[in-house]
Amino acid sequence: MTGTAAEIVFDNVSKRYPGRSSPALDGLSLTIPAGTFCVLVGPSGGGKTTALKLINRLISLDEGDIRIDGTSILDLSPVALRRGIGYVIQQIGLFPHHTVGENIGTVPKLLGWPAARIRERTEELLTIVGLDRADATRYPQELSGGQRQRVGLARALAADPPLLLMDEPFGALDPITRARQQDEIRRLHREVGKTIVFVTHDIDEAIQLGDRIAILGEGGRLAQYDTPDAILADPADPFVAAFIGEDRALRRLALRRLGDVPLLPFAGGGPSVGSALTVRNAVSLLLEGGFDRLTVTGDAGTPIGTITLAHATSLLQS
C-alpha cells in the first residue's frame, strides 16, 4: 500500500513565544519535495521541534504560511489536518488502556473505516514494522521499548498519510535498538515513499537518515539546507562546520559504499574487501595495515576494482 507523498513548503515562518527575547523560528523558508526524508537538526533552542509541530498545528502558526501540496494548513480544521498526517513522538504516547491493535486502528476508526478493513490494515502494518500479528491483542505495557516504538510507527502509518512527522522518535532507545530502527525507517521510507520530516539533535542520525538536512541554529535561524554530502563537503558557515565536526571528510566517505563509487581498474595486490564496505572503512583498513591498495570484490567474489588512499582523497573532491 503505497500512498502518495506530499510537498511541504515553509514560507517565511516565524514563531515567538511570549516572554522570550529571541524567536523560536526566524523567517524560515524551506521547500521539502514530495517523498523526501528531511531531517531537521540542531542544538536545543534551534526551533526544530517548533517547526515540526507548526506543521500539524500543535503549535499555532502566527507569522508566515505552511503549505502542504499547495494548500495552506490554515485552510483546514486542525483535527482534519492532523488525521491526514502521521505523528510519532519520542515518548510514543501509546494509549495504555488500548491493545496494540486498537492503538494502530485509532485514526482509521476516527475516519470511519469499516471494522474488517481496520483489522486487515492493522495486520498488514504489524508485518510492515516487523511485529507479530498475535501482538495485536497485547497491551503496550507488555512490550519492550523498541516494540512500542514500532507500534507507534504503525499507528502513524495506519491511514496511509502522505506525510509523516517524527519528533526524536529514537531518542530514548538503547544504541543497538536505535541503529536497527534507523535502518528500518530508511527501508520503510524507500518502500512507502512518503514525505518524512524527522527531528533530531544528533547529527550522526541526521546524516545517516536524511535525503536532505536542515540545520537550525540559535534563534531559529536556518543555517544550511542541503543533502548530507553537500553539507559535509561545503559547510555554509563556522556554526555548521563546528556542528558537523572536524571529521566531516570521514563522515562523507562513510556515506558511500565501494560498490557505488568509481574505482581504479583492478590491478591486483592488497587484501580483498567486499563492495558493501563503506569508503570510510576501506580507508581505515588501508591505514591500519599500511597497505598501498585494497582489491574490491563483487557479489560473486570476482574483483571489480582497486582502491588506494589517493583515490579515496580524490573521491572527496567530486
Partner: peptide, 21 residues
C-alpha cells in the same frame, strides 16, 4: 500522561474525544 494526550491530539482526536476515550 502528557505524551499520551499529545499523541492523541496529534492524531486528530477532538478535545471531547480525548476526554471520553
Amino acid at each position: 500522561p502528557a505524551d499520551v494526550v499529545e499523541a492523541a491530539r496529534g492524531m486528530g482526536l477532538t478535545e471531547r474525544q480525548i476526554l471520553l476515550r
